[in-house]
Amino acid sequence: MNPIISIIIPCYNSEATLDATLESVICQDFQDWEAIIVNDGSTDTTEEIALSWVKKDNRFNYYAKQNEGLGKTRNYAIIRSNGIYILPLDSDNLLMKDFIQDAILVFEKNLKIGVVYGNAEYFGERKGLWVVDDYKFEKMLVHNYIDACAIYKKKFWKEVGGYDENMPYQGHEDWEFWIALGSLNVKFHHLNAITFKYYVSKNSMIRSFTSEMHEMNNNYIFKKYCTQYQNHFRTLYLKNQKIELEHLKTLKSEKFVIDLFCSTFFKFSIFGIYKIKK
């Protein structure tokens, strides 16, 4: 019988963190899962660690391939998954034990929901909370504020063609994916709770990005979703025009009141002076 949810765990030189990540998987309150570990060309002991967990629990599945990057590795794993739901999990992050259970309850209660996500707690080189907003398509067009560690229906991954493998640089696949789902009007649900722990390291992939790399990925996304950006710009422009017109009406109305007041005040002042002179 197929599992309800597939947890997707790409790995690249993850020997320092993988044990803790897989421990957070096995400690879930919800136990009807499979975990697909994909070794993306690691040169350390990642494979040895992963295989030790496969021996412990047959719900862990292990694959190894040449290094191709995060987007391709996630797609590689999801193609081999059997779950109704997908949960991407970086090999240095930690799941909170009630995340999957809480998300499944949301999906069962409202069949229209396509994605469930929550807040995070930083650990490693940074401490504190990462509290995110509700999903707004217009805001997502500007920048990504939702991590990949969210649970979504696999059918939507199929519908958008998976994670984009053609971006100039790997690292913004999550952002593009959330825009793609938003373009389909997929409904997101924000669990106002900490759902995972996010590992902060100076060696993370995104921190290695130069401004040029950011710009090239941004331009790629802008071009791919040019229709959505144009529609959003048009909406903002018309909204701004409406605000300006209302502001002008207010100014004219205020000017009328001020003019009337000044005129009245002037008349009464003249009349008062006239009476005093008399």
Rank of each mutant, 00 (worst) to 15 (best):
N119H: 14
I179A: 06
E159I: 09
I146H: 04
Y198D: 14
D164N: 15
K155V: 12
G114V: 09
E173V: 08
L191F: 01
A103I: 00
I86D: 02
K127I: 08
K187L: 12
L181Q: 06
Y122D: 02
N203K: 14
L94N: 05
E159Y: 05
L95Y: 01
K154F: 02
I221Y: 09
D90H: 01
F188A: 06
H172D: 15
N110K: 11
I100N: 02
Y163R: 04
R80F: 02
D98K: 14
L129E: 11
Y145I: 02
L111A: 15
F156W: 15
S91K: 03
I100Q: 02
H190V: 07
T195K: 05
N185I: 00
V116N: 04
E159V: 03
R207S: 03
D102A: 15
L87W: 03
L141T: 09
N192D: 15
T195C: 13
N82H: 15
G128T: 03
L184M: 12
L89F: 06
R207I: 07
N144V: 02
N217R: 07
I146P: 04
I194C: 04
F222V: 11
D174S: 15
G162W: 02
K197E: 07
L191Q: 10
Y122N: 11
I79Y: 10
K109V: 00
N219K: 15
C149M: 14
A120G: 11
N192S: 09
V186R: 08
K223I: 00
Q101V: 05
E173M: 10
N192I: 04
V132F: 04
S183G: 10
D102W: 01
N82A: 12
F156L: 14
K154A: 08
L89H: 03
K202C: 08
L87Y: 00
E215Y: 11
S91T: 05
S81E: 00
K112M: 09
N144E: 10
M213L: 09
V116G: 07
M216H: 13
E138K: 13
N217T: 03
C149R: 13
V106K: 15
S201W: 04
Q170G: 13
K158N: 14
E173F: 12
G128K: 02
N119R: 05
R126M: 14
H172S: 14
Q170P: 03
K197G: 00
L129F: 15
D133R: 12
I206F: 10
L111V: 12
G114M: 05
N166G: 11
W175D: 08
D90N: 12
A150I: 08
N192P: 05
S208N: 13
